[in-house]
Amino acid sequence: MIVRITSKFGAVDAVHKTPHTGVDIAITEGTTLRALGEGVVDRIYDGSANIGKGLSIKLDDGTQLIYGHMNEVKARIGEHVHAGEIIGLSGNTGNSTGPHLHLGMKATDGSWLDPTHLADKVANVNWINGPITQIWGLLREKVSEITIDGFTDYLADFIVAFPVIAVVSGGVYALVRILSKGGATWAAIGTMIYGLLIVK
């Protein structure tokens, strides 16, 4: 499953006046979040800070994983969590411009590490929610953004991106056709729809 990073590690922009200490991952509000590794919950964020509701897990190697902007935290301080264990629900709390997960990573010396390599893992451990949930979230996000100017911008981006989306869909069709003729058509259609939804 492909994830969409909306703000990269170290980014400085209109929202982040100082270098971003993690990555922001577009994820539908209310998506079940799971621990990315073994560790102990060492902090709970109550929603009063910029990060909103969230928690920190101190992993067995001493690094910390920080999850922010959650709607609900389902773990307690001192609780030992296993990789894949449910820790809460994604949300839009704190200083947030839309539903997403802020994922941060801290070294044992307190310096911030780039957690980008964990972004796909977030999607993989949450695959139980299914791709339909993610696609529906992207569709809802696109519909909520529709304005005349926004539609014009989207149409211009769509015209530029369509050849790439068509080539990728064709490639998916050819690969899946090796295994299943019927599945190939649906795989290509799904790839096309997903591509159209993520056009900015």
Rank of each mutant, 00 (worst) to 15 (best):
M1Q: 09
V3A: 15
V3Q: 13
I5C: 06
I5R: 07
S7N: 15
K8S: 13
F9T: 11
G10F: 06
A11L: 09
V12Q: 08
V15Q: 15
K17P: 01
P19I: 03
H20D: 09
H20Q: 06
T21D: 05
G22L: 06
V23Q: 01
V23P: 03
I25D: 03
I25H: 12
I27Q: 14
T31V: 13
L33E: 08
A35Q: 05
G37Q: 04
G37P: 01
E38W: 10
G39W: 01
V40T: 15
V41R: 05
D42H: 02
D42N: 13
Y45I: 08
D46P: 10
D46A: 14
S48C: 04
A49W: 05
N50I: 11
G52Q: 13
G54I: 10
L55A: 13
I57F: 05
K58L: 10
D61T: 12
G62H: 10
T63C: 04
T63Q: 13
L65H: 14
I66S: 08
V73Y: 05
V73D: 03
K74R: 12
K74I: 01
A75M: 00
R76A: 06
R76D: 08
I77R: 09
I77H: 02
G78T: 08
H80N: 06
H80P: 00
H80A: 10
V81H: 00
H82V: 09
H82S: 07
